[in-house]
């Protein structure tokens, strides 16, 4: 049995594989089956809507070219129009995020170790991932740049546009590539994919109470001669707000 064809085929090939699949994949699937998958439309919350309308104000011409004219009169029609376009933008943005392999350098989960909740924000929980934009899930396995799962709202749309256009213009020494093809020549002219990518980034973490989460660098309780490590880190993040 251990050395013949059917033993290897059925026991090692099929049975052991099935055993692993059941214990490692089917178990979590069953555990989380009560958490329904949200669609992009359901993910458009007031925070995302704020950012979307902000994009329309800051980049009026590119926004019009990408998504059309925002209805002028307040009312349910305008609401519906904006929500629909924002959901579309989230989908397009997620596709750009995957296509550029952003997630191979920026993870999307905060661990309960290594002081990550101080640096990035609240530790990730399962329900946060039960949605269409996490299909397949964007956990990521490598951080060249910081985690982005609490990135939304930390920085302005202008900042994101300029940063995507030329990262080292804002963060000196950044090894991030520039993504000029999401713009028509200059950072104030993002194209549809560019606008969508910015909205996707602003969406990350927008579902949390703590949105927008700013890095929390408390001075070390150890009395150092001069608290060098704490001060410079807090400054750029805090200055970047609204």
């Amino acid at each position: 049995m251990l050395e013949n064809r059917s033993g290897v085929f059925f026991i090692a090939g099929l049975f052991f594989f099935a055993l692993a699949f059941v214990s490692q994949a089917v178990v979590p699937i069953l555990m989380y089956r009560d958490q329904p998958e949200l669609t992009a439309e359901q993910l458009v919350n007031p925070n995302v809507r704020f950012q979307f309308e902000d994009l329309a104000k800051r980049f009026p011409e590119p926004f019009k070219a990408a998504f059309g004219e925002v209805p002028a009169n307040p009312g349910p029609e305008r609401e519906e129009w904006l929500n629909k376009r924002a959901a579309e933008a989230l989908r397009v943005g997620r596709k750009a995020y995957t296509g550029e392999a952003c997630w191979h350098c920026h993870s999307q989960f905060v661990r309960p170790v290594s002081n990550e909740d101080r640096r990035f924000g609240p530790v990730s929980e399962a329900w946060e991932y039960q949605n269409e934009l996490q299909r397949p899930v964007m956990f990521g396995t490598r951080r060249v740049g910081p985690d982005l799962s609490r990135e939304g709202g930390r920085r302005s749309n202008d900042w994101h546009a300029a940063h995507l256009f030329q990262p080292n213009a804002l963060i000196s020494g950044s090894p991030m590539p520039s993504y000029k093809w999401y713009f028509d020549g200059s950072p104030d002219k993002p194209n549809k994919k560019g606008l969508s990518l910015i909205l996707y980034l602003q969406w990350l973490g927008s579902w949390l109470e703590s949105y927008p989460y700013y890095e929390d660098y408390k001075a070390s309780p150890l009395r150092l001669p001069e608290a060098k490590s704490a001060a410079p880190a807090a400054a750029p993040a805090a200055g970047e707000g609204e």
């Binding site: 994949a25 699937i29 998958e37 039960q130 269409e132 397949p136 899930v137």
Partner: peptide, 17 residues
Amino acid sequence: IPQYFVNGTSAGAVGGL
């Protein structure tokens, strides 16, 4: 499976596998 059948955290488990 993670593309068409499950999503989120369970899809992460499948992706790891």
